[in-house]
């Protein structure tokens, strides 16, 4: 009896410790980034592009990467939404007949969700060679769009499937076409769509491997879709390998900026999805 009790206590202790390690690792990571990055933060960092080249110039900031990242993540999320919303609606509200078809389609998106971004990057690269494009903002947006499509579709699919079917039926029984009824459903899930946008944006802005091949890097803020674009993750990666302390400092500052952006986005998404799930029946 004593042994059983001891075993219970022992494993409970192990569990608590594990939970502390798992949950606490967040503080370790964010703490490291803040301690290292905060000292390099300045107004210049946020408002200036690097002077004298991002790899060797010691002056200036990372505005090129901030703007580039916003462009890429924003563009990819918008493009992704244009594709994902119709697909999510189609598999939930249009596909009828055999139930295995939507299930197979869902399985495809589960699998696509698991494909690593380096593979999307490589595929984007092939696509660009095939189309005769150079590394550019547009190339980056296309590759990252492919990456976020499964994220968006899976999130939207889950949200739409929580909408009571009767709501859709109510619109249909008023003589609405499937599209008109779908618009009612979309209206109902607006908070959910925003959650999906945040998740997609957060993933897109942090991704390296997909933009590495396709967006290139530049000291300047891209003025058109055809120009190469810098991004925060690549700014971190490239500038960290520089021997100059000032350039490394830009990398740490970029890491700090990226972390803050991503944390804010994730917190917002969590709050929203909680509020949304409270409303579902």
């Amino acid at each position: 009896m004593r042994r059983r009790k001891f075993e219970e206590q022992f494993f409970k202790l192990l569990m608590v410790l594990s939970t502390i390690v798992v949950a606490g690792s967040l503080f370790l990571i964010v703490g490291t980034i803040v301690v290292k990055g905060l000292p390099y933060m300045s107004l210049d960092m946020l408002t200036k592009t690097p002077e004298g080249g991002f790899y060797s110039g010691k002056e200036g900031g990372v505005l090129n990467a901030i703007i580039g990242s916003l462009y890429i993540a924003g563009g990819a999320t918008i493009l992704g939404l244009i594709i994902s919303i119709p697909v999510a609606i189609y598999i939930n509200l249009y596909l009828k007949g055999k139930s295995f078809i939507p299930n197979t389609v869902r399985m495809c998106f589960d699998v696509l969700f698991g494909i690593p971004s380096i593979v999307y990057g490589a595929f984007g690269f092939i696509l660009m060679i095939y189309l005769g494009m150079r590394a550019s903002l547009l190339g980056g947006i296309i590759a990252v769009t492919l990456l976020v499509i499964p994220i968006l579709i899976r999130t939207l699919d889950e949200i739409i499937s929580t909408v009571p079917r009767e709501l859709h039926d109510a619109a249909l029984s008023l003589g609405a076409t499937r599209w008109e009824a779908s618009k009612v459903v979309l209206r109902h899930i607006i908070p959910g769509i925003i959650t999906a946008i945040l998740l997609s944006f957060g993933r897109a802005i942090g991704d390296v491997a997909a933009v590495m091949f396709t967006a290139g890097f530049s000291d300047n803020i891209p003025a058109s879709l055809g120009e190469p674009a810098a991004s925060l993750p690549l700014a971190i990666f490239f500038q960290l390998s520089s021997p100059s302390a000032e350039v490394q400092g830009r990398a740490y500052a970029s890491a700090f900026i990226l972390t803050v952006i991503v944390l804010v986005i994730t917190v917002l998404a969590n709050i929203l999805s909680k509020r949304f799930s409270k409303h579902k029946i």
Partner: peptide, 12 residues
């Protein structure tokens, strides 16, 4: 939140 941290940050 940990799930949202980008890979490159883990790298740093």
């Amino acid at each position: 939140l940990l799930a949202g941290i980008p890979p490159v940050i883990f790298g740093v």
